[in-house]
């Protein structure tokens, strides 16, 4: 059953990804991207990553809703009433993307991946918590600083004027 669910989610993820660049409205593109992200979150649930899968799903729902607001702010074609095709170098981009896909897919099937090392822990969430509060704490500290830096940078960039040019 999980194999069928995986393929359904995989097809949904890829179809959503394609739809992002095919539909005529940026709002629709945002929700197509959301469908793709949710499908990938669903595939994580299939490989016992319950916490991370739910985290991806919840975070992406929030993120895409915020994104939809910005999309509606910036798009020139809100209702998708007119065809929207705004691309440059379309042919070259398609060729490069296809070549990269062939390369990555060949790598995925031809690389002799190592055998599975050890069984999964009984509670992967607990293992993750112990890792980020122990040996992988540096990763989370860097992530925390990066989030803070992003908050400062976005506010600086988005404020209408600086403190001194009144």
């Amino acid at each position: 059953m999980s194999v069928g669910a995986f393929w359904a989610l995989a097809v949904l993820a890829v179809a959503g990804g394609v739809a992002v660049f095919v539909v005529d409205s940026m709002a629709r593109a945002t929700f197509a991207l959301l469908a793709s992200l949710l499908a990938v979150g669903g595939t994580l649930l299939l490989v016992d990553l319950h916490y991370v899968g739910v985290l991806v799903i919840l975070m992406m729902v929030m993120e895409m809703l915020v994104m939809a607001v910005f999309m509606i702010m910036y798009m020139m074609n809100p209702g998708g009433l007119m065809p929207m095709k705004m691309v440059h170098g379309d042919r070259a981009a398609k060729i490069i993307a296809a070549a990269v896909f062939v390369l990555l897919a060949a790598g995925a099937f031809l690389t002799p991946w190592p055998a599975r090392r050890g069984p999964p822990p009984a509670d992967p969430t607990r293992a993750l918590g112990l890792a980020i509060m122990g040996p992988r704490m540096l990763v989370m500290m860097v992530v925390g600083v990066a989030i803070l830096a992003t908050m400062v940078a976005t506010v600086v960039l988005a404020t209408h004027r600086g403190r001194y040019d009144r």
């Binding site: 793709s36 910036y74 995925a108």
Partner: peptide, 25 residues
Amino acid sequence: TFLLLAAALFSIGLYGVLSQQSIVM
């Protein structure tokens, strides 16, 4: 199969990054 899915998503995204004119797209 998971890596195939990842490769497909990555390539579609790469196509969008290379071809879209709108910064948000």
